[in-house]
């Protein structure tokens, strides 16, 4: 049995490859055999700089490597996004509850992603892509700040071309060279013609998820079948540090993915 403090020990492992997604976002491919569920996260350490939680963004059934997509927002993510192939990172995990993969089988699925929120949903979509027969119709609704901020563009093109899913993309601002949609991601719900029996998976800024969930409820979706991925300050990932508490919940291990029936009350109270 490991002591509490030993659970904070990282495994040091090699970064096999890096891929720039956008100006401020990079995907690291890390050598690791640790299995994970879509929606779970790892704690990544840049030696000497610090540690932060990063969701898995890679295929859940490809053994030997993990993908982690990191947006540069602070000192640690600055260091992590500057990592070169062959460098070493510290990794521990996976932590948290992921997306309800078993429940997705046989169901229509609507995936709504805002900004970097597409990264924690990518493992779900990759799993769907590998096994389209197991799922109903899938719609992927993606919102980004500008066309330059759209993540995983080559994936989006491939998914859009596949018959397994419909892909809709919108941005908040664009100049006249953009031929796609401009407006919030919830405006895509009309063209996507969502089946009220669908399971919805939402990840993005909390305000976006709140509005999207409200619109999905209005379309007749069950609050137990709308899932959101919450973000709070997670320093340890294992319920020790206390920072990620949201009311009675430790987001790090009771989340980050929770059904809307649970999240709605927690999001209702400001500064809970």
């Amino acid at each position: 049995m490991s002591t509490t403090i030993e659970r904070l020990a990282a495994t040091w492992t090699r970064v096999a490859a890096t891929r720039r997604e956008t100006a401020d976002t990079v995907t690291l491919t890390i050598e690791s055999d640790q299995p994970f569920r879509p929606g779970q996260f790892d704690m990544l350490t840049a030696l000497g700089v610090g540690e932060c939680p990063v969701s898995h963004s890679g295929h859940p059934r490809i053994a030997g490597v993990h993908e982690h997509t990191i947006r540069r927002v602070g000192a640690v993510t600055n260091a992590l996004t500057a990592i070169k192939p062959g460098d070493t990172v510290g990794i521990r995990g996976p932590y948290g509850r992921g997306w309800p993969m078993e429940d997705l089988v046989g169901s229509d699925i609507v995936v709504i992603a805002g900004g970097i929120g597409l990264a924690p949903l990518r493992p779900v979509i990759l799993a769907l892509e590998s096994d389209p027969g197991s799922y109903g119709r899938a719609a992927l609704l993606v919102g980004a700040r500008t066309p330059e901020d759209i993540q995983f563009t080559s994936d989006l093109d491939r998914w859009n071309a596949s018959s397994a899913m419909d892909v809709f993309v919108t941005v908040d601002r664009a100049d006249e060279t953009w031929v796609g949609s401009v407006g919030v991601v919830t405006r895509l719900l009309d063209p996507a013609a969502i089946n009220p029996e669908s399971i919805a998976l939402l990840c993005g800024p909390e305000i976006m998820m709140r509005f999207a969930a409200t619109d999905l409820l209005a379309l007749g979706l069950d609050p137990d079948r709308i899932y959101v991925s919450l973000e709070r300050n997670m320093e340890c990932g294992i319920g020790l540090c206390g920072h990620c508490q949201l009311g009675p919940m430790f987001v790090c291990w009771q989340g980050p993915v929770v059904p809307w029936s649970v999240a709605a009350d927690l999001m209702r109270v400001p500064e809970l």
Binding site: D175, E176, T177, S181, V182, D190
Partner: peptide, 23 residues
């Protein structure tokens, strides 16, 4: 189809505020 609602100001490319579609 898709329609862009735009605004122009001198010296910058027209900015799309919102797009509208069928319906």
């Amino acid at each position: 189809g898709t329609v862009a609602i735009e605004i122009r100001s001198p010296g910058t490319a027209p900015q799309i505020i919102q797009t509208l579609q069928g319906g």
